[in-house]
Structure formats: structure tokens, C-alpha cells
């Protein structure tokens, strides 16, 4: 009787305890994946609920310029009396938006071109030379040119960063396609009369997904950095939008008097990029151990 109750007790306890143990084991085995994921989720959450936790990032209080951190302004104020904390929080929105957009655009475009160049040898010769050419364009130069031609906006920045990233994705996808297209199950599909588009989508595309996810995280990290660099140079996001690059650019003149104005966005930038890279490394170890860090 006693054992029976004990057994029932254990059975009732087991699922939640087992879940806890599983989570702990997952963290122990994938520390980078977990750390990167946790930091990023936190930053994403903060960016999402920015209006709830931070004040208006644009309100200027000329009387309160360059104030050190205080109870009213947790991270102090900048040279126009704007709240550094609010601006840092809102800056996360732009950084994450740019990072995610560039990663998804370059993956979608690169996947499409990569599938075609990998499968059709005639397309390959032409398209890959074109990609080599694109790869030679520095993102910053392209952004300056685009901003000069059109006008500064977040979209311009995204386009400018995406273009040089596309060839990297193309190369990665192409290399996977080249190896998979010779697989006997692809031959079997051809013998079974499967049309080319279906071979590409059903048999080849799924093999590109794990390395692409990993690559997308690295692209995301580099896009966040390039966006900040462009803003810093004044060739990126318009200065009225609070971004980390803009904040650093505007604060550099006051570095010695008000270092907090530059520390907040600087540290935020470093932490987010680090988190994205940790996430990428963790994903790579899980999904695709053989992939080199950069194709």
C-alpha cells in the first residue's frame, strides 16, 4: 500500500521534474545556444514593449542636458537633454529590424539564385561571375551611393547591406545543391518523371535549410554592425531616428564630459552582436557541425 502511494506520488511529480531536468541538460549541452537565445529574447522583448517601459526618445529638455544617470533618467541625458535609456531601448528596434530584414531578404534572394545556379550548369557560369562582382562591393560604399541617389531611410540601409550579403548565401546554397543533385534519390526522382521545380523544392531545398539558418544568424550580426557603422558615418538611418549608431555619432563630441551617452548604445550594440553570434555558433554545433564559419 505504502509503495503504491509512493509510486502514484512519483508519477504525478515526474513530468514537471523531468521537464526541468531536460531543460537543465539542454542548457548544459548547448550553453552558447542558450545564452545567445536568452539575451536576444530579452532584447527583442524590450524592443517590442518599448513604449511601455521607456519614455519618449525624442523629447528634448534643454535644461537637462548631459545629466549623469539619475532616478529620473536611468542612463542620463544627451546633449539635447533626451533620455539615453529611452533612446537605447528604441534603438534596439531599429537594430533588430535591420538585422532580421537583411538576414531574411538575403536568404530568400540567395536561396532562389543558389538553387538555380547549382542545378542548371548554364546559369551557373554567368550567375556566379555576377555574384563575384557583387561580393567585391563594400556595403558601406554602396550605402553611401544609394543614400546619395535616393534619400536616407531604413529601407535604403537594408537594401545596401543586403546586396553584398546575397552572394555569400548563393555560394552556400549552390555548394549544397551541387552535392545533393548527384544523390541517387534525385536520380530516382528524375527517373520517376518528377518535374525540375519539384525536384528542387522537395528533394534539394530541405538540405539547404540547416546551413542557411546558421548563415542567417551571422548575416544578422554583421548587418547590425554595418547599420551602426553607416549611421555613425551619417550615411545610414536619418539622424532623427534613434539608433545606436546615430547615438554614438552624436555623442562622440561629448565623450569626455558625458561618457554615459556613448556607453549605453555601445554596450547594447556589443551585447546584441555577441548574442547573435553565440546563437549562431550554438545553432551551427547542433545543426551543421561541418560548416565553416564563413563561406
Amino acid at each position: 500500500m505504502a509503495t503504491a502511494t509512493a509510486g502514484a506520488f512519483v508519477a504525478a511529480e515526474a513530468p514537471s521534474r523531468r521537464r526541468g531536468a531536460r531543460l537543465r541538460r539542454f542548457i548544459r549541452r548547448n550553453p552558447t545556444l542558450f545564452a545567445g537565445g536568452a539575451i536576444l529574447s530579452l532584447v527583442a522583448l524590450v524592443a517590442l514593449v518599448a513604449p511601455l517601459i521607456a519614455g519618449d526618445p525624442l523629447t528634448m529638455q534643454p535644461a537637462q542636458r548631459l545629466r549623469p544617470p539619475s532616478e529620473a533618467n536611468w542612463l542620463g541625458t544627451d546633449n539635447l537633454g533626451r533620455d539615453v535609456f529611452s533612446r537605447t531601448v528604441y534603438g534596439a528596434r531599429v537594430s533588430l529590424f535591420v538585422g532580421l530584414s537583411v538576414a531574411s531578404f538575403s536568404v530568400v534572394v540567395g536561396l532562389f539564385i543558389g538553387l538555380l545556379t547549382g542545378y542548371f550548369r548554364r546559369v551557373d557560369a554567368v550567375a556566379m561571375r555576377l555574384m563575384d562582382g557583387l561580393m567585391a562591393i563594400p556595403a558601406i560604399l554602396l550605402a553611401i551611393a544609394l543614400v546619395a541617389l535616393t534619400r536616407a531611410s531604413v529601407m535604403t540601409v537594408i537594401v545596401a547591406i543586403t546586396i553584398p550579403e546575397v552572394p555569400r548565401v548563393v555560394r552556400l546554397v549552390r555548394s549544397v545543391v551541387l552535392s545533393v543533385r548527384e544523390a541517387p534519390y534525385v536520380e530516382a526522382a528524375i527517373a520517376g518523371g518528377t518535374p525540375v521545380w519539384k525536384i528542387l523544392f522537395r528533394h534539394i531545398l530541405p538540405n539547404t535549410v540547416p546551413p542557411l539558418i546558421v548563415q542567417a544568424t551571422y548575416i544578422c550580426a554583421s548587418a547590425i554592425l554595418i547599420e551602426a557603422a553607416l549611421s555613425f558615418l551619417g550615411a545610414g538611418t536619418p539622424p532623427e531616428i534613434p539608433t545606436w549608431g546615430n547615438m554614438i555619432a552624436q555623442s562622440r563630441l561629448f565623450l569626455s564630459r558625458a561618457p554615459w551617452t556613448i556607453f549605453a548604445p555601445g554596450i547594447a550594440l556589443a551585447v546584441v552582436v555577441l548574442a547573435v553570434n553565440l546563437l549562431g555558433d550554438g545553432l551551427r554545433d547542433r545543426l551543421d557541425p561541418r560548416l565553416a564559419r564563413r563561406m
Binding site: P184, Y185, A188, G192, G193
Partner: peptide
Amino acid sequence: QMVFQDPYASLNPRLKAGQIVGEPLENY
């Protein structure tokens, strides 16, 4: 039609057996 040498590599590991056998049917 063809039967392949390698019964491992000639079946797409991501598809279910029914999908593999049914693919030629689907095509025609």
C-alpha cells in the same frame, strides 16, 4: 523505370515511405 543499387541513398530520408513510392504516381 529503375531500381537502384543503394537502398539507403536512393530513398530521400526526409520523405515518408508512402510519399516516396507515390511520387511517380503524383507526377503522372
